[in-house]
Structures are given as structure tokens and as C-alpha cells.
């Protein structure tokens, strides 16, 4: 399971792209449907290579996201940490379940991610609409399936089946 150079660059690039997409401007009407790019990409890599993309990566990406979006320092970090921890904790089991079940699990994890963000916003006394908060779960799931198709092909090309 030696990892080639190509397989080292791809995760880093995709994580950077996720951060950029999280901050990219979108038309106003679609703003509340913006997929949560970072947790989707992070969950993918932590499922594929759990020994390299763990909770430290999650915390780091979370902090970057916090600063980028002007959130409370540690808010996204905590949410990402939680979903990546759960993902890693059940990783041996997750790896063998069929795609439909895997997607359901990802939906649950993304909902949990949104819930943590929402909860912290509430505790900190920031005003957030309740209903809009759940739209990204749906769009993120679509992105998850897309990521599975695109990134997985990349991974195979790089000849590093783990």
C-alpha cells in the first residue's frame, strides 16, 4: 500500500478545491443550496485513506473554513471533527456496506454536521433561519455521489488500491 506521488497530490488538490468552492460566489437564490464541499471531500478521503486523513486534517480544514467564512473560531472544526471521528470509528464496517447504505450514512453524517453548526450558532446567539439550514444536506449528498464517481476513478488511475 505504498502511495504514489500522484496519489499524494490529488487529495491535497481536492481539499483545496473544496475550500475554494465553499467560498466561491453563487447567485443569491442558490446560496442556501450551496453543497457542503469540505465535509463531503474530507469524508471521502477519510474513508479511502483513514490513516492519513484523520481528525487532525478535519480540525485544520475546519479552522480554515472558520476563518474563511467568519464563523466562530472552532465551529466548523468541531463539526468536521465529529463526523470524521464517527466515520473513522465505524470505518471497518462502513467499508463493506453497499453503496445505498453508505450514501444513507453519509446523509446522516452531513445532517449531523449541519446540526452542530446550527446548534453552535444558536448557543452563540446568532440568528439563523431554521428551515434553510437543511437544504445543503440534499445538495451535498448529490455532490457525494459525484465525488464518489470522479475521485474514485482518479484513485484507481493512480493505482493505489488500499
Amino acid at each position: 500500500m505504498t502511495l504514489g506521488m500522484g496519489n499524494r497530490i490529488m487529495p491535497a488538490l481536492s481539499l483545496l478545491a473544496a475550500l475554494m468552492l465553499a467560498a466561491a460566489p453563487v447567485p443569491g437564490w442558490s446560496a442556501s443550496f450551496r453543497p457542503e464541499w469540505v465535509p463531503v471531500v474530507l469524508l471521502f478521503w477519510s474513508l479511502v485513506a483513514p490513516d492519513r486523513f484523520g481528525m487532525l486534517t478535519a480540525a485544520g480544514m475546519g479552522l480554515a473554513l472558520d476563518v474563511l467564512t467568519g464563523a466562530l473560531l472552532g465551529q466548523h472544526a468541531l463539526a468536521l471533527l465529529l463526523v470524521v471521528y464517527l466515520c473513522q470509528r465505524f470505518q471497518p464496517r462502513i467499508r463493506v456496506i453497499p453503496l445505498a447504505q453508505l450514501t444513507l450514512m453519509i446523509v446522516a453524517l452531513l445532517a449531523l454536521y449541519e446540526f452542530v453548526l446550527f446548534w453552535v450558532d444558536g448557543l452563540a446567539g446568532r440568528t439563523v433561519p431554521f428551515v434553510d439550514r437543511w437544504a445543503p444536506v440534499l445538495s451535498s449528498t448529490a455532490v457525494w455521489l459525484l465525488a464518489l464517481a470522479v475521485l474514485d476513478r482518479w484513485r484507481r488511475v493512480a493505482h493505489a488500491r488500499i
Binding site: L16, L19, A59, A64, V67, L72, L73, G74, A77, L81
Partner: peptide, 30 residues
């Protein structure tokens, strides 16, 4: 660590410098 960071960030303003450093780190992304 995250929770402590959030509490400190929410209640006090000691984290200005931390935020500034991180802000420079994510500047290329912006």
C-alpha cells in the same frame, strides 16, 4: 480544544492575533 476555542472566541477578544495569522494563511484562497 475546539469548544475551548469557541468559548474564548465568543466571550473574549484575545484571539484577534490568532485570527489575523489564520487570515493570512487563507488569504491565497480568497
Amino acid at each position: 480544544a475546539c469548544i475551548a476555542l469557541m468559548v474564548v472566541d465568543h466571550r473574549e477578544s484575545h484571539l484577534e492575533r490568532v485570527r489575523q495569522v489564520l487570515s493570512v494563511a487563507v488569504h491565497p484562497i480568497r
